[in-house]
Write a protein that binds this DNA or RNA. Structure first.
Length: 409
RNA sequence: GCGGUCGUAGCUCAGCUGGUAGAGCGCCAGGUUGUGGUCUUGGAUGUCGCGGGUUCGAGCCCCGUCGAUCGCCCCA
């Protein structure tokens, strides 16, 4: 055992450029979501385990083997949230908001999944998300996707990211389709990969996005959901595509897209990229018309998505979009006796809304070196008699200024 | 949960077929009489991820373990 403590497996510190990217993702997403009418919701980081076991479906790996569940001192089974959609639906019900629909919720925060860590995949990771609760109209599907696309664009990472979309249909369509798939794959069972043989029993739809070469060849000839859609489901999907065109969101239809969590129906979509290795999905979601009912509320058709903040931040880094650190003004007292007037000047700058700092020690030369290393934009030199010199550190020019004249700088 | 690769100063890395560690950057202090980004001189820093084994001797070999990473699985 090392005496040096490390962050727990799958967790990490975000400091400096990492923190700035993370904040940029949250701030940008929050701002853009606001333009679409989404208000931020804060739901608890841990919930009654049933919120997730009920909502996500126990066939999903997330519920079956990836949750951080524990019993608290009172004997309650609690779980660190592995995602936030179930919590938002629970909150909608608990707060009686089913009486005032639709609701548009935005969230950003940590989620927890016990997975094998990889680049862009952590045990504590962070998601942003947008949910429209209480709107069955396809316009809602399109709007929530449009918000996501604008966030991706605003982050400067749209290049290399593409929206893939599909429909899972309603329950009737899905059951019919599932039966057709099972029939098809069962007939070719011996050609399926080992993984897909178990999928065939557990979740046949997942065979559609298998990475195995033999599976993919089989999938080529597999039946499409299109043939099994009810008239209503087909109309909904067609309308979503039409509205997305209206919103100006480019897309690629992909009949192989499925969703990992059980609560999805109708629209399913993913913003994918080939720049993150195995973690190609950057933002994903769909319609979930039954989830609020699972939480004890009335039938409340809803649609939304979640995005991995670490993955978005990684794309920002690749795209050279890391925000620069703020540039302070360095206040530099020239001699011990200049400290008092320097403090006055320092606070005058801060009161005027200027980012200003004064080193805790060092002679004039050291302080200027430090100012330079901090990438300070200017140094305010303070003489012992209180005289002020404004030195522009980019241009190298220096002019006398007065205490009252600092506000404009 | 499965398979592969990797783990040496704060950072990026070097270290030949095993003989008790180096560079660059960074950091600290100077280059005399208060003004940075260049230049220059000097200095500090590592139980070579951790534990065990083989060996006269291991950073280099073996085993285990922790962590990162790539792929699978899963998913954001």
């Amino acid at each position: 055992m090392s005496s040096k403590l490390q962050p727990a497996r799958g967790t990490r510190d975000m400091i400096g450029a990492d923190a700035r990217r993370h904040n940029a993702v949250a701030d940008t997403a929050r701002r853009i979501a606001g333009l679409y009418g989404f208000e931020e919701w804060f739901t608890p980081i841990f919930e009654d385990t049933r919120v997730f076991s009920r909502g996500l479906g126990d066939t999903s790996d997330v519920v079956a083997k990836e949750m951080y569940s524990f019993e608290d001192r009172g004997g309650e089974s609690l779980t660190l949230r592995p995602e936030n959609t179930a919590g938002v639906c629970r909150a909608l019900v608990t707060n009686g908001l089913t009486q005032s629909l639709p609701q548009k919720a935005f969230y950003a925060g940590p989620m927890f999944r016990y997975e094998r860590p990889q680049k862009g995949r952590y045990r504590q990771f962070h998601q942003i998300g947008c949910e429209i609760l209480g709107a069955a109209e396809p316009l809602a599907d399109a709007e929530v996707i449009a918000a996501g696309w604008q966030i991706i664009q605003s982050l400067g990472i749209a290049e290399g990211v593409v929206l893939e979309i599909n429909t899972l249909g309603d329950a009737e369509s899905r059951d019919a389709y599932r039966a057709a798939l099972v029939a098809y794959f069962s007939a070719h069972a011996e050609q399926l990969s080992a993984d897909s043989k178990t999928r065939l029993e557990k979740n046949p739809l997942r065979i559609l996005d298998s990475k195995d070469a033999a599976d993919r060849a089989l999938v080529e000839g597999a039946p499409l959901i299109t043939a099994h859609l009810t008239a209503g489901a087909a109309a909904h999907y067609a309308a979503v595509l039409r509205y997305l065109q209206g919103f100006g969101v480019p897309l690629r239809e992909n009949p192989r897209i499925v969703r990992g969590l059980d609560y999805y129906s109708h629209t399913a979509f993913e913003f994918v990229t080939d720049r993150l290795g195995a973690q190609g999905t950057v933002m994903a979601g769909g319609r979930y018309d039954g989830l609020v009912e699972e939480m004890g509320g009335p039938p409340t058709p809803s649609v939304g998505w979640a995005a991995g903040m670490e993955r978005l931040a990684l794309l920002m880094e690749d795209a050279g979009r890391t925000p620069a650190a703020a540039r302070p003004v360095a206040v530099v007292p020239m001699g011990d006796a200049a400290e008092a007037p320097a403090l006055a000047a320092l606070q005058a700058l801060r009161a005027a809304g200027t980012h200003a700092e004064m080193a805790y020690r060092g002679n004039l030369k050291r302080r200027l070196e430090r100012a330079n290393k901090q990438n300070a934009r200017a140094a305010l030199l303070v003489a012992e008699d209180g005289g002020l010199q404004w030195k522009d550190l980019d241009a190298g020019t220096q002019v006398a200024v007065s205490l009252g004249g600092l506000a404009g700088l």
